[in-house]
Design a protein around this nucleic acid. Structure first.
Lengths: 156, 156
DNA sequence: TGCTATTCAATCGCGCACGATCTATATTCC
DNA sequence: GGAATATAGATCGTGCGCGATTGAATAGCA
């Protein structure tokens, strides 16, 4: 299907072309991170911490694995992050009674309260992008489909 | 222009919408990183190291700042990374005679030789994406334009 | 010329990501 | 019930990113 297109690539320019798309994603990610750093500083959150909080705002009392499944992160990343949120009194962690292997992560009152403060963040980001919701949605869909393919290739 | 669209956003769904686009970029970046980790393992490089090598393959003998300008990275990130490349004997670092503040980064013979080995990487990534060059180019262009806006907002 | 301001790289501290390993609990199957 | 297996989290080591600071070299200017 795209074999014709692929096979026509000049190896010399490929080292540039390749850099362009992947590097774009890489740069976009770093730029977003910087923007979020600025926007989230008042809340005392990093972007990954904000992601975890969003997951919990949507549904409280999840296990570490359940959070990880939504964010594609494993316990090696989440455990320390959750401990930091716990130190900030935004969440509490407790072993599940039914299955002592699991740790249930729950929002504290302060954690729930933070949701209100976070309300302005999405609008700020949207505004910073100078894009319409439709544009971003379209871009997201395409990006997601590429990510799915990439993730599959990375897996095996 | 998109003010109308922006002002119509329901704050409750915004916390989801927002996550969708930015989270897509974030996830794409992590997924690409994992793919590159696999592809670059034989070369002994990480993705950021590979980026630096690509910059040098294109033009050798740059200063740390010049490399940083192309990759949007500063010396706090690059200095340790370059030291690791130096340890691997892929680059050498030397203070510039003309301006002792600058450090010139040069490819070693092994560093230059690595370019050949890296030749297959871009094709592998393109293949993994299951996209045509045209699709990726289009996606890149849109992403870059958003990134430029985001970076500007993050700056001030 | 001398003094200040700027620039460049290095360093420090912190927080991700993640491959690999470890421990404790739960499940399975005999 | 008990041994083998599987699962959930925690831990360890390494490598980014980056805000903030430092130290050295240069540029600029009175």
């Amino acid at each position: 299907m795209n074999t014709a297109a692929n096979s026509r690539i000049d190896p010399a320019t490929a080292l540039l072309l390749d850099r362009q798309f992947c590097f774009s994603v890489y740069s976009a990610s770093l730029a977003l991170n910087k923007l979020y750093r600025k926007l989230l500083r008042p809340l005392g959150l990093t972007y990954p911490q904000y992601l975890v909080m969003m997951v919990l705002w949507e549904r409280d009392g999840l296990t570490v694995s359940e959070i990880g499944a939504q964010l594609n992160l494993d316990s090696a990343t989440l455990t320390p992050l959750l401990k930091r949120l716990e130190t900030q009194q935004l969440v509490s962690r407790a072993r599940a009674a039914a299955d002592e292997r699991q740790v249930i992560v729950s929002l504290t009152k302060a954690g729930r309260a933070l949701k209100t403060q976070a309300g302005k963040v999405p609008e700020s980001v949207l505004c910073a992008s100078a894009c319409s919701v439709e544009e971003l949605t379209g871009l997201k869909r395409k990006l997601d489909s590429v990510t799915a393919k990439i993730a599959q290739s990375a897996a095996d």
